[in-house]
Design a protein around this nucleic acid. Structure first.
Length: 276
DNA sequence: AAGACCATCAACCGCCGGAGT
DNA sequence: CACTCCGGCGGTTGATGGTCT
C-alpha cells in the first residue's frame, strides 16, 4: 500500500560520523539535482545512509548559508528571549537566527545558555534579597533588560504584529549577502550589523527572511537552488524574495521578528518594556 | 604521564502529523 | 477508513577533545 518502500530494498545503512567523501557525494548530488524525496537521495547519490540521515546532514552541516562558529551576544539574547516565549521550539527559534540550525541552537542551549539562565536566576534571587527596597531606574541596558525579559517573561513586552512589521528586522539579508557562496568572503555578523545600522539595508528583513527561505525552505528539487549557491545576482535575489513577502507576513507575528528586534529596539519605562 | 571527569557537538531515535493509496 | 510513507521536530546518546587531579 501507499508509497514504494524505497529504503527497504537496501541493505544495512551506515551510521556514525560522515566522511568527507560522503559529504561531497551528498553535496554534489543535491546541488545538481535537488533532494526531492529524501529516501531516494542516498540511493541516487551512492550513499550507504538512510534518507533521514542525509536530510539531517544536509540541513545541519552541508546546506549553503550556514553560519559556523561561536554565537554572538545578540544571538544569545535572542535565543534566551525566544526560548522564554516559545519554549523548546528549536525550529521556530532557529527561524529567527539566520544561518543557525535548530540542532545547533538546541546544543548551545543545553551546553551553555541553560546554565547561564540558572546562574542568572540565582544571582537575581540574591540581588532581590539584598536590594528588595531599592527602586529601579527608568532605563537599563539591553542585555540586562533582555535577561530580565527572559527570566520574567514577556508580560509587559509590547509585541503586537503591527509593531513587528513596522520596525523591520535588519540582520538576515546582509548576513546572507556576506556569506561565502555569494562573495567568497567571511564577514562576521557584527560587521553586517554595522552596515545595516548605517542604513544599507533598512528596507526590511522580510526580504532577509526570504533569502533564508530561498536557501532553506524552498525544496531543493526546485529551480532556485543553483542560483542560491552559485550565480545569484542581487536583482535576482530581490525578485525571488519578493514572492515571500506576503507569505511571511501572513505567517503571523513570530515570523516578523528577529533577534535584532528583540535585543535592540526596546526601552524600559515605568517597569514596562516597550518596543521602539 | 595517565586516568577521571567534563563540555561540546554531530548524529541517532522515536514520535507525530500530513498526505498518498 | 486503514495503512503506509515521508518529513519534521525534540530528546537523547555517543564520540571526541580539553581540563583537572
Amino acid at each position: 500500500m501507499g508509497f514504494q518502500p524505497l529504503e527497504k530494498t537496501k541493505a544495512k545503512h551506515k551510521k556514525g560520523l560522515w566522511s568527507p567523501e560522503e559529504d561531497n557525494k551528498l553535496r554534489n548530488y543535491i546541488l545538481k539535482h535537488g533532494h526531492g524525496c529524501w529516501s531516494s537521495v542516498p540511493i541516487k547519490a551512492g550513499l550507504q545512509r538512510n534518507g533521514k540521515s542525509c536530510r539531517l546532514r544536509w540541513i545541519n552541516y552541508l546546506r549553503p548559508g550556514l553560519k559556523r562558529g561561536k554565537f554572538s551576544k545578540q544571538e544569545e539574547e535572542t535565543i534566551l528571549a525566544l526560548h522564554h516565549m516559545l519554549g523548546n521550539k528549536w525550529s521556530q527559534i532557529s527561524q529567527h537566527l539566520p544561518g543557525r540550525t535548530d540542532n545547533e541552537i538546541k546544543n548551545y542551549w543545553h551546553s551553555y545558555l541553560k546554565k547561564r539562565m540558572t546562574k542568572s536566576k540565582e544571582m537575581e534571587f540574591h540581588h532581590d534579597q539584598i536590594n528588595y527596597a531599592s527602586s529601579s531606574s527608568d532605563t537599563m541596558d539591553s542585555s540586562h533588560s533582555l535577561q530580565k525579559l527572559a527570566t520574567e517573561g514577556p508580560h509587559n513586552y509590547s509585541f503586537s504584529k503591527e509593531a513587528c512589521q513596522s520596525s523591520l528586522p535588519k540582520l538576515l539579508f546582509a548576513e546572507w549577502l556576506s556569506m561565502d557562496h555569494v562573495n567568497g568572503g567571511n564577514t562576521n555578523s557584527d560587521d553586517s550589523l554595522v552596515g545595516l545600522r548605517n542604513g544599507i539595508f533598512d528596507q526590511n528583513s522580510i526580504l532577509q527572511d526570504a533569502a533564508i527561505h530561498d536557501m532553506s525552505e524552498v525544496p531543493f528539487g526546485g529551480e532556485y537552488h543553483h542560483r542560491c549557491v552559485t550565480d545569484i545576482s542581487t536583482p535576482d535575489m530581490f525578485n525571488s524574495q519578493l514572492k515571500y513577502v506576503n507569505q511571511t507576513v501572513e505567517n503571523g507575528f513570530v515570523h516578523c521578528i528577529t533577534g535584532v528586534d528583540l535585543c535592540c529596539n526596546y526601552s524600559v519605562s515605568n517597569g514596562a518594556i516597550t518596543y521602539a
